[in-house]
Design a protein around this nucleic acid. Structure first.
Lengths: 205, 205
DNA sequence: ACCGTAACCGGACCATGGTCCGCTTTCATT
DNA sequence: AATGAAAGCGGACCATGGTCCGGTTACGGT
């Protein structure tokens, strides 16, 4: 399962030819270099090809399209983050109270999505395909809600809680409406508290 | 304020030249025709230009870019919807209880965003600029929350409630995860009820 | 009616995402 | 080591979003 941390090395199809593997690594390294040299917008498919010293067609063969390339790039940091959630120190990792874990999860995810906003945006056409991160987050939130003994349609509730943390929405709030990160954070905490608190319905006496 | 309903006629700059006005109308009509003949994806800037019988440059002059054109197209249905909310029959329009209005608002907005998903997606690059619909929705929800005497950071709470209704997220749920519309609807109702119900904090005795 | 100006028009032009297909490389088998 | 075929490669090619600028047109003042 830690294989997920090594997207540069983990293979594509079951048996990948050595030249193909070499090129895939070269392409990702090139893309990473470009993204920090010219910004996400400057990562042109042709530029990546040139930087990696391969043909343009090769880039498309490996990553389908620009969004796919970006998604592959994202997996770097995304899987590192997943590991923190799964096995890092509390309160994000296991060991803390579920509510604390949930709130820590929100804080962390919020920052991550703001930081990677551009990249996520550029990769988003490729999701639906395999943005593992999204379903991972949904699963985790759902699990924590269960641990908190929240009842209701947990998968949908998880989606609803994650929605305000989406990069698209955060971008609007932070970049356009000029919202403070702390305020967004506080609001999410408030939202979670409202959702999680026990139903007003009196129990079976 | 009803001018907002006539996006085809309402002018751009203070004093628009007659030929410019004619072209703007022609372009929007052409675009609308194309979108229902070839789908949103088939609306090429050049195709619009040809259909309207003008040069390609003119299209870009009027609408800045593809997203701008789509946004202009959206305003058609969007402003009709706004009028329903502002002055239509209850429970969506005024006259019903705030909670009922809020739930009706969600149902309605949900359907609208699913229907216009593609168009909204295509126009979204242009938002931040002037997607009036979004801030209108936020304002309305905020108002209803106020009427329900919900306390807290109302603007942020409104954003949080609207987030799961965003086209991007609905698309994933409905198209990719195969969620049922009714289920999404029910989940939103549940979310609202959780958020709105009075805080567990005991009042000042 | 005339004129100067400012706005507008249009299509040639560029950049970039994406496709295609003939050539090359790799690798399993012998 | 030789070999055949599957996989991979690469760059020419296309479509489309977006820019630019010389020529044209409408408008207001006289």
């Amino acid at each position: 399962m830690t294989d997920r941390m090594l997207p540069l090395i983990e293979g594509g199809p079951v048996h990948e030819r050595s030249d193909a593997a070499r090129n895939r690594v070269a392409l990702l390294v090139a893309a990473r270099a470009l993204v920090e040299r010219c910004g996400v917008a400057g990562v042109t498919m042709e530029a990546v090809a040139v930087e990696a010293g391969v043909g343009k067609g090769t880039v498309f063969r490996r990553f389908e399209n620009r969004a796919g390339l970006m998604a592959a790039l994202l997996n770097f940091s995304e899987s590192a983050w997943q590991d923190e959630v799964i096995s890092g120190p509390p309160p994000l990792g296991p060991g803390a109270e579920p509510l604390d874990r949930l709130l820590a999860f929100g804080r962390s995810r919020l920052r991550l999505n703001v930081t990677h906003g551009e990249l996520i945006e550029a990769a988003s056409q490729s999701f639906g395909r395999s943005y593992a991160a999204r379903s991972f987050a949904a699963m985790h939130v759902r699990y924590l809600l269960g641990a908190l003994e929240v009842d209701g349609d947990l998968p949908m509730l998880a989606t609803a809680l994650l929605a305000p943390l989406e990069a698209v929405i955060l971008d609007r709030q932070v970049r356009i409406e000029g919202m403070d990160l702390e305020r967004v954070d506080a609001a999410w905490t408030d939202l979670v508290r409202r959702v999680v608190r026990p139903t007003g319905v009196p129990g079976p006496s």
